Amino acid sequence: MLKNKYKQFNYHLMLLPGTIVLLIFSYIPMLGLVMAFQKYVPAKGFFKSKWVGLDNIIYMINLPDSKLIFANTLIIAVQKIVVGLIVAIGFALLLNEIRLKTMKKTIQTLVYLPHFLSWVVLATVVRNIFDYTGPVNSVIQALGGDPIIFLASNSWFRPIMIITSTWKEFGFDSVVYLAALTAIDPGLYEAASLDGANRFHKMIHVTLPGIAPTIVLMTALSLGKVLNAGFDQIFNLYNPLVYETADIIDTYVYRIGLVDMQYSLATAVGLMKSVIGFILIMSSNLLAKKFANYQIF
């Protein structure tokens, strides 16, 4: 008994560094949420700043900008989730059909690589590609069209965000589905072959139903990220000309909080995001339990 307790103590000791980091960077900063209910003045601090109750939250709800940023966040995040899910599943299915191991590993390496690159780096690549004198506009001009300022266009900015985000993450996201594919019973494919099914029919009638629980689970879990539209990507690519369609909660909080120094209002917006995010995470947990028989916590 004592030996088992000693082993468990070692395991808990291994968790200590991560727990300390979590406390310092995630839980202790939550004390700053009190600013959402104050007219916060840095020189006075938390204890001497004037208490205003729900005034900041009510003011935030009545701001036209608040409705716009919440709408932008939802639109961009949902589109990223849907497109990313479809592309990741499609890629996993196609990659699973490749029989040459060398080619399969090469393709996997190439599509996984962008995931490990920072948006600070990739933003420069995207700017160069969609620049007024970049390769995309060169092709458009060669076909007789007029060049487009893509990253300064409200019509084009969102599609570019969706496409580039999907390109960066779909390879890594497909890992889960590739793992699910390995759990499918090979006997089902043999039975399908005896029935005269070709590779496409096997994919539709065996492979997709086999990974359906994983698809449902990943879709349910992604609901918790529906208010995270990708601060790093948008912050490194947007500009005032596209605030109408590109400004999301995180960039808005950064701008009004750190740039305009409206700390209380920025905290109120961040708090509202956290509350909605918590509700969505709890909802995703219930959906995962109902449709995939899996609980996050």
Results as ranks from 00 to 15, higher is better:
residue 55 D to C: 14
residue 136 V to H: 05
residue 99 R to S: 08
residue 21 V to S: 08
residue 46 F to M: 14
residue 48 K to R: 06
residue 273 K to T: 03
residue 17 P to C: 11
residue 192 A to C: 12
residue 53 G to C: 03
residue 221 L to G: 11
residue 103 M to N: 13
residue 132 Y to G: 08
residue 274 S to C: 09
residue 220 A to D: 05
residue 172 F to D: 01
residue 223 L to M: 11
residue 44 K to Y: 13
residue 174 S to D: 00
residue 3 K to F: 10
residue 68 L to Q: 12
residue 152 A to T: 09
residue 180 A to T: 08
residue 88 A to Y: 12
residue 268 A to Y: 00
residue 262 Q to Y: 12
residue 35 M to W: 05
residue 224 G to F: 00
residue 198 N to T: 09
residue 246 A to R: 11
residue 99 R to W: 03
residue 107 I to H: 06
residue 289 K to Q: 01
residue 33 L to C: 11
residue 126 V to G: 06
residue 297 F to L: 02
residue 187 G to F: 01
residue 230 G to L: 07
residue 284 S to D: 10
residue 74 L to Y: 06
residue 162 I to E: 01
residue 185 D to A: 03
residue 31 L to C: 10
residue 295 Q to T: 15
residue 123 A to W: 10
residue 67 K to A: 06
residue 163 I to Y: 12
residue 245 T to S: 03
residue 199 R to A: 14
residue 4 N to A: 06
residue 296 I to C: 12
residue 176 V to Y: 03
residue 64 P to A: 12
residue 253 V to F: 04
residue 27 Y to A: 07
residue 80 K to D: 15
residue 54 L to C: 14
residue 167 W to E: 15
residue 19 T to I: 12
residue 204 I to Y: 12
residue 181 L to G: 00
residue 207 T to D: 09
residue 129 I to R: 01
residue 88 A to I: 00
residue 220 A to M: 06
residue 234 I to G: 06
residue 208 L to T: 05
residue 53 G to F: 15
residue 195 D to Q: 02
residue 263 Y to L: 06
residue 36 A to R: 05
residue 40 Y to S: 05
residue 288 A to D: 00
residue 167 W to N: 15
residue 142 A to I: 10
residue 244 E to M: 14
residue 252 Y to K: 07
residue 56 N to K: 06
residue 290 K to Q: 15
residue 37 F to M: 11
residue 164 T to N: 07
residue 51 W to M: 07
residue 21 V to F: 11
residue 169 E to K: 04
residue 149 I to W: 09
residue 149 I to N: 10
residue 152 A to I: 05
residue 282 M to Q: 11
residue 12 H to E: 04
residue 246 A to V: 00
residue 252 Y to M: 04
residue 214 T to W: 13
residue 182 T to C: 03
residue 196 G to R: 02
residue 53 G to I: 15
residue 53 G to D: 14
residue 78 V to Q: 10
residue 35 M to L: 10
residue 226 V to N: 15
residue 88 A to N: 07
residue 101 K to F: 10
residue 84 G to E: 10
residue 192 A to K: 09
residue 96 N to K: 11
residue 260 D to A: 05
residue 65 D to Q: 14
residue 139 V to H: 03
residue 74 L to P: 00
residue 50 K to T: 01
residue 185 D to K: 06
residue 166 T to G: 02
residue 138 S to P: 09
residue 36 A to F: 02
residue 17 P to T: 10
residue 205 H to K: 13
residue 240 P to C: 14
residue 193 S to K: 02
residue 288 A to E: 00
residue 295 Q to R: 13
residue 168 K to S: 06
residue 69 I to L: 14
residue 249 I to H: 01
residue 61 I to E: 04
residue 254 Y to G: 05
residue 270 G to C: 13
residue 238 Y to R: 04
residue 275 V to D: 14
residue 122 L to K: 08
residue 115 H to W: 08
residue 184 I to S: 03
residue 245 T to K: 12
residue 60 M to S: 13
residue 100 L to N: 05
residue 100 L to P: 00
residue 199 R to L: 08
residue 282 M to Y: 09
residue 297 F to D: 08
residue 150 F to R: 00
residue 85 L to V: 03
residue 282 M to I: 06
residue 259 V to Y: 15
residue 219 T to I: 04
residue 78 V to S: 03
residue 244 E to S: 14
residue 213 P to I: 00
residue 252 Y to P: 03
residue 119 W to Y: 08
residue 183 A to H: 11
residue 168 K to G: 12
residue 121 V to L: 15
residue 69 I to S: 13
